[in-house]
Computed example of a mutant assay.
Amino acid sequence: MKTEAVLFAGVAGFFLAAGAVYVWLSGREPAGSAALAVSFVMASLMAFFFAVNYRRRGARPEDDEKAVIADRAGPLGFFPPRSAYPALTALGAAVTALGIVFGLWLFIIGFGVLAAGVGGMAFQYVQREA
């Protein structure tokens, strides 16, 4: 993750320099200045995240040129065989989007269906033994 931290630090430095030049040349125009400032903050946050994770966990197998694929292998986890909840979630999202166009009543119905689908996906296998 050290490479990613350096990469995002470089992006943050670019946004900082571009923002300073933009503020100087535009006469403090607020929209572009704010966009570049937010871009700088977001890139800095990502660089900080990757740097902290690198310090905590150290180098990954991907960082070693002599590593093999098996070095990263581990338990894959649980994958459900079939579920109706993804279709219900998609239906809820579609009805919610139509509700934005056609009215609050349809939006509320769609949001209820969407919440049921997302809740069902989240809690479908809660009773499953690990």
Rank of each mutant, 00 (worst) to 15 (best):
M1I: 01
K2H: 11
E4D: 11
A5P: 08
F8D: 14
A9G: 13
V11S: 00
A12I: 08
A12M: 09
G13S: 04
L16T: 06
A17L: 11
A17E: 10
A18N: 03
G19M: 01
V21F: 00
V23M: 06
W24P: 00
R28W: 08
R28P: 11
E29A: 02
P30A: 12
P30D: 14
P30K: 03
S33P: 05
A35W: 09
L36M: 11
V38L: 13
S39M: 06
A43S: 05
L45E: 04
M46Y: 11
F49C: 03
N53A: 11
Y54Q: 13
Y54V: 02
R57N: 12
R60P: 09
D64S: 07
E65Q: 07
K66M: 07
K66A: 13
I69K: 10
A70N: 09
A70M: 12
D71T: 04
G74A: 08
G77H: 09
G77D: 08
F79V: 14
R82T: 06
R82L: 06
R82V: 05
S83I: 09
A84E: 06
A87K: 14
T89V: 12
A90M: 05
G92Y: 10
A97K: 05
L98P: 03
L98C: 09
V101M: 07
V101G: 11
F102L: 05
F102N: 04
L104P: 10
L104K: 04
L104D: 15
I108S: 09
I109T: 13
I109C: 06
F111E: 05
V113W: 04
V113K: 13
M121P: 15
A122E: 02
F123R: 10
Q124S: 15
Q127A: 08
Q127Y: 10
R128P: 15
